[in-house]
Design a binder for these strands. Structure first.
Lengths: 190, 190
DNA sequence: GTCTATACTCGGATAGAC
DNA sequence: GTCTATCCGAGTATAGAC
């Protein structure tokens, strides 16, 4: 897993992620990918056997980064403070490194669903959303735990939750406060 | 807007909705649509000038049904009871008539984003999600109002919120209770 | 007014030359 | 490791049959 002479493979994946996130998987032609890399279309087929295999690579990166966070989150204690820390961590990643990956996931939701690796991706997204659930709890508490994670995620997608009235507010902040309330069971603390 | 002698046009839209919801817009070929209708591919072009125009028809149905609900919801009083009634109504529609339409919207999120009519669809989905917002309220309250609607919607997408531990629970019921709490500001009433 | 036959273009994919 | 040539399938356009 080392000593690759050129970096073409990685560059393809990077350009593909960009284009897939912008225009969507299906609407992105390999022609465009090749052009942006200054190579010809069939040249791509040296590095990947199929267009879908390029997708696979991008999905794997997404899956790995989520699984990493889930693994970390699982070995945190079940205290309220630790759970809030998990929420903050998710929010931080989303507004930073994860942004393009999540944009990609959102735009290509349909393509991901029919992809071989889609099952695994779905599984780890569920793990992420369920990270704050405690096994013994009631169905309602579990739903609230998941909703809290979702709230933080949605706080990073202004499209749906942008408040027309006052666009100044930091949506992330608001989402985090609402998620906190959901997890702690209402505690306005102000 | 009446007196069409054959129903081919409607049948195309119906079959298209089915296939788009199943396999996704891009992965559905006009060949498949035509085959399922027992006509030839070019015959579709008599009724619709392009594949995208078929999509447009499906989107319009979706938009209309949402706008209808939003219009009704907007003329409800701002009382707590009325807001809960709105949530119940959304939940009811989702688990019934809207199910295929929402599955379609979910699978084809990417395609919808790049469609001319996508803007309008997005707008009316935002209206739907914001239906319980009251203009003067704090950003937090508004976020919670939107989250309540989302919760009800998510309660109908078992994929993400299914509880492994006890799959017997009616997710809709749970979602509705959680949404109620969000709207009324915590009131366990049990 | 409704559909079929045919043909064109473009994008994904393969084989083989350099 | 990349390019040329080529194939195939899908969206699209048009002519014309009924």
């Amino acid at each position: 897993m080392a000593g690759r002479r050129t970096d073409t493979r990685e560059r393809i994946q990077q350009v593909a992620l960009e284009l897939f996130a912008e225009r969507g998987y299906d609407k992105t032609s390999l022609q465009e990918v090749a052009e942006r890399l200054q190579i010809t279309r069939p040249a791509l087929y040296y590095h990947f056997r199929t267009k879908e295999e390029i997708l696979t690579g991008v999905i794997e990166r997404l899956v790995e980064s989520i699984e990493e966070l889930v693994a970390w989150g699982r070995q945190q204690p079940a205290t309220t403070e630790a759970r809030l820390e998990i929420l903050r961590r998710i929010s931080g990643l989303l507004s930073d490194q994860w942004r393009p990956l999540f944009r990609f996931a959102q735009v290509n939701q349909g393509a991901l669903e029919h992809h071989p690796k889609g099952e695994r991706l779905r599984g780890c997204v569920i793990s992420l959303v369920s990270l704050l659930c405690v096994p013994g709890e009631s169905a309602e508490k579990q739903f609230e735990s998941r909703l809290a994670v979702l709230a933080v995620i949605l706080g990073n997608l202004p499209l749906l939750f942008g408040s027309e009235s006052d666009p100044e507010t930091d949506l992330n902040e608001v989402a985090l406060r609402v998620a906190t309330k959901l997890v702690t069971g209402e505690q306005p603390d102000e």
